[in-house]
Design a protein around this nucleic acid. Sequence first.
RNA 1: GCGGGGGUGGCAGAGCUUGGCCAAAUGCGCAGGAUUGAGGUUCCUGUGGUUUUAGUACCUGCAAGGGUUCAAAUCCCUUCCCCCGCACCA
Length: 950
Amino acid sequence: MINYSEIEAKWQKAWADARIFENDVSDKPAYMVTAAWPYVNTPLHIGHLRAFGTSDVLARYKRMRGFNVIYPMGFHATGTPVLAFAKRIKSGDKEIVEELRMFHVPDVEIQKMTEPAYIAAYFTNESRQLYGRSGFSMDQRRSFVSTDPQFSKMVEWQFAILNSKGYLTKGRHPVGWCPNEDNAVGMHDTKHDVEPEIEEETAVLFRVDGEDAYMLCTTYRPETLFGVTNMFVNEKVQYVACRIGDGGKQYYISKAAAGILKYQTKVEILEEVGADRLLAKTCINPMNGSKLPVLPGFFVKEGVGTGIVMSVPAHAPFDYAALERLRKEGRLQQEIKPIKVLDVKVGRSLSDVSVGEAKPSQMDVPALAYMEILHTNVDAIDDMLEFATKLEYREESHWGRMLAKGYEGMSEPEAREKMKKELAANGNAISVYALQNAPVYCRCGYEVVVKVVEDQWFINYGDKAWKEESKEALKRVNLLPDRTRNAFDAAMDWIDMRAVARAQGLGTRFPLDSTKIIESLSDSTIYMSFYTISNLVKDLAPEKLRPEFFDFVFKGIGDADKVAASTGIDYTLIKKCRESFEYWYRDTSRGSGPDLIFNHLVMYIYNHTAVFDSAYWPKQIVVNGFVMSEGEKMSKSLGNIVPLSDALAKYGADPSRMNVIAGADLYSDADFSGTAVRGIQERLEYLYNAATDLDKLGSGELKSIDYWLYSKLSGKIGRATAAMEKLELRDAYIPIFYDSVLELKRYFARGGGNGIVVKDFLSSVALMLQPMAPHLAEEMWHTLGNDSFASLEKWPEADKDMLDAKAESVEEAIERMLEDARQVIALMEKKSGKRARSIKLMVAEDWKRKLLNALAKEKRVDRALAAVNGEEGVSMETAERIATMLAKRMNELQPVGLTQQEEFVGFSDAAGYMAKQLGCDVKVEKEAAAMSERAWRSVPLKPSIDLALE
RNA sequence: GCGGGGGUGGCAGAGCUUGGCCAAAUGCGCAGGAUUGAGGUUCCUGUGGUUUUAGUACCUGCAAGGGUUCAAAUCCCUUCCCCCGCACCA
């Protein structure tokens, strides 16, 4: 058994003592690897091992390829989460305490986490230790936290540039809002961590007949306005007459709606109005002027929309049901006929029930038809009606075609957009916001509303010139994997105004409004560049880090003399910072998760184009997938999140790394599973034991199987290197790791045992294993007699001269031979009931090679036959039979380079091995010498078999 | 709804960019055998379906349907299903 913790501790200490991962400016080409930093309230889990480990593998690989590499890592602490975290701890929130206990955070520590500073300190410290224990080759001197005042100075400088380019603009913006605490709420502030989803709704104005006032009515389907027959209000609800907006019109809405709307716009309540007064009124349809009676609707809710509903009985089951119920109760004075406004294509409706089968009455009232399809009726419970509504809504918006004048033939979504525009243009509608997933509750218990924040600051990612420049920058980025490019392109097009100033949270003050804090994704778009100087400026007084310092260091503006004079920073330090930035920031790789493509990563590109010269724009972005646990998605609710510390302790760093990082393609999700990790451990152990047992092997002249092993080695270096360049780590580590084990096993089984050959093989394997399993690779490397660090060695080069097609084809032929022989033996033993005693293999004559090669080249039987006609010992009858046989697989035919003699020697050498595999004697002979009826059937690399039974 | 990704053996997952040599590398699981006092480990063999056979083969299969082509998992169209994101939130 390998003692992982012992080996890991040994090498981690050796690396740290030798400081081999702390690098500075040198003559070597520079390479900088960064990965998206973790948030300081998150204990690290196995997912982080994937994200940071992938970057570590890249850093380690690049080091072996001759680059001077740094892999720095900082911490994110800005924004609201750490404040919310402290608050929850303070209030004794059980959920969060449980979560922390799952990560083995001691209770004494949890109790101390009432201050953001302590939380940040605790987790940064824990994380740094875990980085070390994971074997990450990080340069820890460069670590910093996003709340560090020196870093803040850089963010201020960055925002001054954004402002000078006109990218900061002001406007209004809807946010989730807690009326009780009077501040914005995000996911972290709500009960059960739900994100308040804000949705824009169209509110249509229905003028009240004979009044200069309107009933306001929100709807998702304004295109059905042509089908409105009446209005619904709820008899039990309190309504108000009010004015909305500055100098706005007079409206009727529910009192509850007024209470919500006042967060979005000015609402001035004129008087309270009972439902009975509304029921006495008549409205006018703004689209066609038709008169609409106001009726009581059982389903109307005061807090949903405006508490007033436009009734479209032809297309809304609730509306139809409400009218029918009124009719039954005898409360419907006038005849109300549903008006159909859209039709569905024949054969495409009602959940696959053909429209043709529907009754004419159903055709006129789709709402009724959908109820019937679901075997329900107008007296059904609300849930059933809701279900019918959703079904109808979905099918009509998918397949519906408009009937109304001016909209004929349009799809519903198309008509909706047109209608919205028309209504807005004529002043017949206004936009209001609502929570799509209402009700959402703040942690304090109050229901969240939508507030429209005035004077919100935005970063205008919609700026045309900026967008173009950033798209250009994206084109130049090497995306790994490249198939994320579509997502990046889409993200580039989509990103627009982004609110940037927040009232709350940790972080840098917004320069244009010092009462606000810069939103925390926006303060982290160019932070990687700060790693190039973070170790140099961390002890400087923040106020010295004036804009001219950053101008000089990051943009080369001005000169060091003057900057030194105005800032008081040492001249040589300033020069050093500039030098460091120029050196490290040219060739970079940015690692991240797929969830960040649509925010962080596009903002990263945008901000680089805004701030830096093009030589320092992003060069490579790596997007890695998530990690699952035993086939399931990791989540708090399932309680199956694997803490990184657990994985390291239980399985060791190297096996865990291999499982999580090399266990799946770059962009696919990996599965952390016990059986898989144990499988990896067994193989690591096999390779390690092979290295320690090397002295038991002999030496001597190289045999065919030795050449085969060299050939395999050379091939795998080529394959692995190609895969590593694209960071396809699974593809790389199958040949490096899994195949190597199989090949060594085969090598020994085939009688290989040359210590020099095995040492060469293992040396290369150990080096290629180094990026992924660095500890064990170091240990193996030293076991093999080396004194240097494997971490600093050169990546092996493929030696093309070692590629030995003949040796490989012999081995492949032997394997195929065994398969065939097994089939024959099984068949004959079953048939005869006797055991196989011995097998004679008859190797094809040289003329058959000529025949096969001619056939492979010419692809024609006649020409191939002509090529061997007249040769010594050739029977044309046999030649024809063989040629016909081979021709069946014409496309697969590969020329054979091996002579009969070579093939004979190859099979003869393997006779013992084959005998062991088959459990019977194996003799090898040349075809002509074999004196067997079956000898003629031999084909190059496919000897004929003669089986003798007992 | 919009945007992005996907659907291949019992499972995970290659192959799709550049059509044929290619369906399924590798691992897990399962079955049989060897080793072992037993279990585990390890080693060997088998593992989509079917037919045939003293082996070198054939048929059917890559979500469903259609098309292009001498040839389609791969290109095109239609439909269905699954996952992720949709913003001020890290």
